[in-house]
Structure formats: C-alpha cells, structure tokens
Design a protein around this nucleic acid. Structure first.
Length: 816
RNA sequence: GCGGAUGUGGUGAAAUUGGUAGACACGCCAGACUUAGGAUCUGGUGCCUAACGGUGUGAAGGUUCAAGUCCUUUCAUCCGCACCA
C-alpha cells in the first residue's frame, strides 16, 4: 500500500465529522470514562505543547472507546485574559474579535490533527452563557461568605494610571512606558480559600496513587501548614513613649519555640502597621523611609534573595529572660504570612543568620547537635539538645517545643498556633477582557449583588483599549445602573474576574449536554454520571495554582449542594515541556516548530507518533526533525507491509506448537506489545515504550513469512496503534478486517511459554558470559553450567559464594 | 531565596521489584538494489585498545555478592512562587 497521509487523513476526518463519531452518549447505563485535557488559551495557533497535550488525551479517549466505554472527551477555550488586551493595545484589534477569530482557526487545527473531541460541547469561557452561570456562582459564594473585600497591594504605574500584572513589570518598571512602578493599596475581592486550607491539605491523601507525588508535595508545601507558638513582644518604656503610647506590643509566630532563648533581635515587615505609623509621624529619617519604600516596591521573590534591613531604634523585652532586644525591619519578612513580624534566632535559622552577619547582630547558640561539635560558621537548623535555656537545658528540641509552648500558655504569654502559607485568593482585576464581577455600588445600600435574573452582566463592545486606566471605568455609560435593591442610581462594579475562576469549573460545564445549556450550568444527574474526571492531562506548570483552585471550587460547589464529591480529578498526568535545541519553544527565541507545517509535510499521524515516541509524557520532549522523519518512515513501512496480510473478518486460529522459532518469536513480540498497551493506560503512561514494543513486533514479523502470523499481527497491532495513529489504522482496519478488529483484544498466554532460560553469569558482579538452561534445572546444576562457562576467570580461585537469581543471572564470588 | 523535578552513547531514550546498562529509534559507517528517491533493503555502531582486555549512567564518597536504581555531599539545567494562562 502506498502511504499518502494527506488523502487518508482528509477522508477519515470527514467521515468522523459527518457521522459525529465521537459525541458522548446520554445513555447513563453504560460504563464511562471522562478524559480531559487542560483547555488552551486561544492565542492564535496551536503550539507543540498543545499538540502533545491533546495527542495524549486523544490516545486515552480512543483507547477507552475501543474498550467499550462511553467516553466524554471535550475541549473548549479559556478565552478571557490579558493577551487579548495586549493585542488590542498593540494592533488596535478588538479583544472579542481577536479571540473568536483565533478560536475559529484553532478549531480547524484540532480537526486536522484528528482529535476525537466532542464537537457539540465546545465552549469558550468568554461566551455570555458561560459568564451567566459563573456570575451566578459568584453570587452564591458571596452569600456563603466566601467572597469578601479587603485592601491589597497592587503594582501601579503612575504614568498609565493602571494596575499592572507581575508579568507586566519589567525590572521594576512598567512594560509600556518604563515608569518605575509603585505599590498601591486598593480594595480587592478575595475568595476565602484559607477556610478550606485544612481540607485541601487533608484530601491530598485521597489523591495518592492517582496524582504524581511531586504535585501532591508541591500542593502540600504551598498550603504550608505549620504548628508553633504565637506570642506578644512588649516594647520597653522608652520605645512605648517614642510611639506615643499607640503600640504596646506586636505579635510574632515561630515554629521553633525551642530556640526562644536564642532570640537576639526581632524583625518587622516593611508594611507592618508600626512601621507605617513611624513613617507617618516622622519618627524615621528621610533616608530610612526611602529604603523602606524600595523594599516595599521590590518583588516578593527579589526580597528573598538579597537580604536588607535597618534598625528602628525600638526595643522589646524578651518574655522569658527580660533581656532588651532591638527591633529591625527586614525585607524578607512578608506582611501576608503570620503576623508580619518574626523573632530572630540567628544561631538556628539560615536567614536570620545571614541578616545578623550582615548587620553585626549578636548570635546566641542554644541548641547543640546530640552528637559531634556544632559549626559556628553557619546556622545549626536541625533539632538537638537545648543549652543556655534555663530550666529547659538538656532537653531535646522536640520535647522542648511542647514544654515551652506549655510554659507560655501557663504564664499567659502566648499560645499554640497553626499557621498556613496559603493566602486568600485575590480575584478582582482592573481590566476589560474578563467576566464582570456582578455587584453594584449603591450610595444607600452599599455593596449589592445583581439579581440572578439579570445575568449575565455582559461586557460592552464599544470600548477603546489603550493600556491606560481601566477601560470599563472609562466607558461613558456602562457602569451607570440602578441598584437592584432600592432602584436608585448606582454604579456597577468595573473590576472583572481573574481568569483562573473560569478554569476552576469548566470541567463541570462539560458534563452538560448541549440541549439544556441555556437553562442550567449542568444537571445533578449528568454530574453524577460523568464526574470525577478519570484522566486529567496538562502541563506541570499548573501543578499548584490551577489545580488548587479547581479543587477549592469543587469543595465549595459541594457545600453549595451542586455536587456530591470532594475531589474533581481522579488521575492526573502532568506532561513536560516541548523543547527545541534544549530550550522552551518561544517566538522570541525563534525556535518554534509550527504544527501546521509538520502536518502538511508528514501528516497528523506522524506528528502524533513522534510526539508520543520521543519521550515519556512526564518528561521534557526535545524536538528533532530527523526523528520525525523516522516516525514517518515507520508508518510508511507499516502501511507497506500490510500486503503480507490476508483480508478477513476474523482473527486467524494458529496452532502454536507447529510454528518455527521465528514465527513463535513474532507472535511473542506481538502479544508483548498488546500486553504493554493494556498496562500503559492505567499507571505508567509510557507510550514511548509501548510504541517501541510495536516496532519490535514489526521487526519480528518481518523475520518470518507465515501469512497467518502476519494477519494475526496486524489484527492486533492496528488495534493497539489506533489510539496513536488513528487515520492510518482506520484505513488499514477497514481495508483488511472490515473494521472488526478495533476493539478489546485477548492476550494468548501460550505464546509466552518457553522451555529454556537465558541467564547472565557474572564473577564478582562483572558480567562474563551468557548461558542457556532448562526451565526445570536445579540451582546446583545451574551453578555447574555457569562455572564451566567462566573458567578463565575462576581458574585457581576459591569460590566463596554463588548466588542464583531465578530467571536472571548467576553471580560467582571469588577470592584471591 | 524558597518549593518541586531532571541529569545514562554523537542524539531522543530503555532498564515495572537492587540482578546481563544502552531495548526501540535518530544519526553515522559499510554493503546491496536501482526506474537516482524525502528512497528501499541488509549488516555494523558506548568509549579506550591491533588484540587480550579495560572502562562506562553529571561529580565525589559510602552501603551491598551485586548500584543507573539505596544513603551522604556537591554541581548543572528546567518548572512554580499567588495579577501570564
């Protein structure tokens, strides 16, 4: 058969589309699989990362269809977001037009790759229908007390009068006009995700086995639960007087109460209220104030790198020793973790140590290792035995932590406290291309929710986007409305939502079949049948934020009564990046490979095969043009050798015992490939080795010329390969077997039976020979055979030990 | 800076449990066949060595009869860090 991918692929894509071959069935009595890939932002064209992502999900979807499951394999577009506005600023395009043009193009690309997505359930999160339900959920969450307003620090460009995303801040300056940014305290909306902190942490246990360990660990660390001691540090009289008696003390939190006697200074965040007070009341000199401003304006990452600080000229009293301790400001102390103040123990904390070294602050060691000497040139951060700690001397860290907390509680100086690194999720954005937050500001009623029957609150289309100011706020009429409560003139909220909100529930929306899309977001029955997602596939870069937010939404929806489960994604597969020349593909580096060009040159099947063969999915994938060529040649061979196959609608019956060694070998390789294909979808996802198995089977088939063995081989291999190279396999299967072989296959154990084993023989662990022994051979006999084959190395030496690992090797340990 | 990963031939990788390192490909070399092609087919190919053999999984130590796999230290690269999606 002459392999011309362009015509085969066009033919099958056309058939699949006209027969609606991949729509999920509404027959909920069937077993189901929900295969989901992370939906794309409609940037304009698919990139190789997308191709990898959707090839993976498509492979799962097609496999489970062959196994007889009712498969939901949907796709949509995460279509709100900054790039649409950036394009508007750059080219004057309208975000909506730009977005939907891109979506149209990318849909065509999906088709040309043969992805078996449901066509009927495609959605874009910027569709007004999607916004409508999302705004409804936001209102529900507000009613539940899960959405609230508070002040938050934002990047502000004084020139453009606009809020900037971290990404838009380049070296501390605005990306457009290069003006140095400042931090501005503004009213923001927040989801109370911290209320679910404990459950988000606890339920990670339910995901063990289904999710990669590294993702669970990252989420655990992100939530960052820690237990410790919280207590007040009181100012001395002189400091109180300096602060005009406005502050008696401040709160600190420590996870290491056992080091309490080693405290030699304390440090406040530059944003701490005491610091703000001192600035406002001119208690600091101009130079210090400038230094504090600099700390505040630098990014939280930069603040962790180069430590800096300054003394405030205040002192507090150590709660136990009553020693006087100086108060500093330190850039690495962050206002949004704990209380924005720390007790510093330089002897036993790396950061405190660096800071103390830099500013020549005293270092008091109070913990020593239980064995060996302590190294005074760095902090000793392990646990150990206390000393210089009064009545706690000689106790080990662990025990001392509990005792010291107890001591503080008894004396009423502090209490045991749990802290989280997790912060509430700020969801408001001062931007146009997002879902409007459905609230109204009324002079009389305050903050009022829109009525659900008025949803969606849609975006105005007549808008000018310049990069200056907030487009919705600047719109002449849009924000003026009536208060839903009292009917007076009121002002609509002009903030829109973080796009992470849309991606936190889209997987639920996909469960809804399109006939009731208008009336409800999804039905309980549909959710019950389709959820949870059996395989969720996407980039490792989403390991924390997106996945945490989606888990949070699921729990909120459960508590709102919309769903009846705790976790949305049963199994997660995080794919690695696609690289070229060792670097992430990007336009700025000029190392991109256009999927369309590859499809045109070799066809979609080649692209899909290469991308699964080149590396296991979780690893980074290095693009290699000549290896793509190799994948194409394999498909050509696969098509060509189908001429050795008999046309039939039945799997041929073969008497294994009558076959030659080569014929037996070929059958064994074929069934090995089948076996591998059955494991690979459940746990390891190593499609690369599965494909290698098929290649080995092809090589082995080629070593023999029994047409029945060829026929059986193709019956099985076209079925195994169909999820990966669907166009060619449907073509072959239809022509050769009337399509009858695309279904689940039975492994014949008889082909794996052997009557001899090949063992390696090593001497002192070094491989020296290979022997063949009968299956029933005794250990003693095997050792004798082994000895006979390695005489050269054991001659005149004493054999101290002989180890036989059944089926694998013999190791002879010699002396002398 | 903090958290998470990765490191094996010229290249992508394989080695499910501590048990014959390099399967399967790409590339390269040699040969065959030519209707001279984006061919196809056959054989070879970790490194050093003429060979015997030695050596080899980022580096350095260690545990073990046996280490790519376990432990300690270290280096390099990548991902995330809360307003990129």
């Amino acid at each position: 058969m002459n392999y011309i991918p362009a015509s085969i692929e066009a033919k099958w894509q056309n058939i699949w589309s006209t027969t609606k071959a991949f729509e999920p069935s509404n027959d909920f009595s069937k077993p189901k699989k929900y295969i989901l890939s992370m939906f794309p932002f409609p940037s304009g064209r698919l990139h190789m990362g997308h191709v990898r992502n959707y090839t993976l999900s498509d492979t799962f979807a097609r496999y489970y269809r062959q196994q007889g499951f009712n498969v939901l394999h949907p796709i949509g577009f995460d279509s709100f977001g900054m790039p649409a506005e950036n394009a508007a600023i750059k080219n004057g395009s309208h975000p909506k037009g730009w977005t939907y043009d891109n979506i149209d193009y990318m849909k065509k690309e999906f088709g040309s790759l043969g992805f078996s997505f449901s066509q009927e359930r495609m959605l874009a999160t910027s569709d007004e229908l999607y916004t409508k339900f999302e705004q409804g959920f936001i209102i529900d969450m507000y009613e539940k007390g899960l959405l609230y307003r508070k002040k938050g620090m934002l990047n502000w460009c004084p020139h453009d009068q606009t809020v900037l995303a971290n990404e838009q801040v380049v070296d501390g300056c605005c990306w457009r006009c290069d003006t140095p940014i400042v931090k501005k305290d503004m009213n923001q909306y927040y989801f109370k995700i911290t209320q679910y902190g404990d459950e988000l942490l606890e339920d990670l246990k339910k995901l063990e086995g289904g999710w990669p360990k590294q993702v669970l660990t990252m989420q655990e660390n992100w939530i960052g639960k820690s237990n410790g001691l919280a207590f007040n540090l009181f100012f001395d009289d002189e400091s109180k007087a300096k602060l005009g008696s406005n502050f008696e003390s401040f709160d600190v939190f420590t996870t290491r109460p056992d080091t309490i006697y080693g405290v030699s200074y304390t440090a406040l965040a530059p944003e701490h209220p005491i610091v703000s007070y001192m600035i406002e009341n001119a208690l600091l000199d101009a130079q210090s104030i400038e230094q504090i401003q600099e700390m505040k304006n630098s990014s939280s990452i930069d603040r962790q790198k180069e430590k800096s600080g300054l003394p405030l000229g205040l002192n507090v009293i150590h709660p136990l020793t009553h020693a006087t301790i100086p108060v500093w400001i330190a850039n690495f102390v962050l206002m949004d973790y704990g209380s924005g103040a720390v007790m510093a123990v330089p002897a036993h904390d790396d950061r405190d140590f660096d800071f103390a070294q830099k500013y020549a602050l005293p270092i008091h060691a109070v913990i020593q290792p239980s064995e060996g000497e302590s190294d005074l040139s760095k902090a000793y951060t392990e646990s150990g035995i206390l000393f210089n700690s009064h009545e706690f001397d000689g106790i080990d860290s662990k025990e001392a932590q509990a005792k010291i907390i107890q001591h503080f509680e008894t004396l009423n100086l502090g209490q045991k406290t749990t802290n989280y690194k997790l912060k509430d999720w700020g969801v408001s954005r001062q931007r146009y291309w997002g879902a409007p937050i459905p609230f109204v500001h009324c002079d009389d009623c305050g903050l009022v929710m829109e009525k659900k029957e008025n949803l969606p609150i849609a975006l105005p289309e007549d808008i000018v986007i310049t990069g200056e100011g907030n487009p919705l706020e600047k719109h002449p009429t849009w924000k003026h409305c009536r208060c839903p409560k009292c009917g007076q003139e009121a002002i609509r909220e002009t903030d829109t939502m973080d796009t992470f909100v849309e991606s936190s529930w889209y997987f639920l929306r996909f469960c809804a079949s399109s006939e009731n899309w208008e009336s409800e977001a999804f039905s309980a029955e549909q959710i019950k049948y389709w959820m949870g997602v059996d395989h969720y596939i996407g980039g490792i870069e989403h390991a924390i934020l997106h996945l945490l937010y989606a888990r949070f939404f699921t729990k909120v929806f459960r508590d709102l009564g919309y769903v009846n489960f705790d976790e949305p994604f049963d199994r997660l597969l995080t794919q690695g990046m696609v690289l070229k020349d060792g670097a992430k593909m990007s336009k700025s580096k000029g190392n991109t490979v256009d999927p369309d060009a590859i499809i045109e040159k070799y066809g979609a099947d080649t692209a899909r095969l290469f991308i699964l063969f080149a590396a296991p999915p979780t690893q980074e994938l290095e693009w290699n043009d000549s290896a793509v060529e190799g994948a194409f040649r394999f498909l050509k061979r696969f098509a060509d050798r189908s001429q050795n196959v008999n046309v039939t609608e039945q799997l041929p019956k073969i008497d294994h015992s009558t076959l030659s060694k080569e014929e037996k070998g070929a059958r064994k390789k074929v069934y090995e490939a089948l076996k591998r294909s059955q494991d690979v979808y459940v746990e390891r996802y190593t499609f690369n080795t599965m494909i290698a198995g098929v290649m080995e089977a092809m090589n082995a088939l080629n070593e023999q010329n029994n047409r029945d063995v060829w026929t059986e081989g193709y019956w099985i291999l076209t079925s195994v390969m169909e999820p990966i190279v669907p166009h060619l396999c449907w073509e072959l299967s239809t022509n050769l077997f009337g399509g009858k072989n695309l279904g689940s296959q039975v492994v014949l154990e008889e082909v794996f039976e052997v009557d001899a084993l090949v063992l390696g023989v090593s001497v002192n662990g070094k491989n020296r020979a290979t022997i063949e022994v009968g299956v029933g051979e005794t250990q003693e006999a095997i050792i004798e055979i082994a000895k006979a084959h390695v005489e050269k190395w054991i001659e005149g030496k004493e054999i101290v030990k002989a180890i036989v690992v059944p089926g694998k090797l013999v190791n002879l340990v010699i002396k002398g």
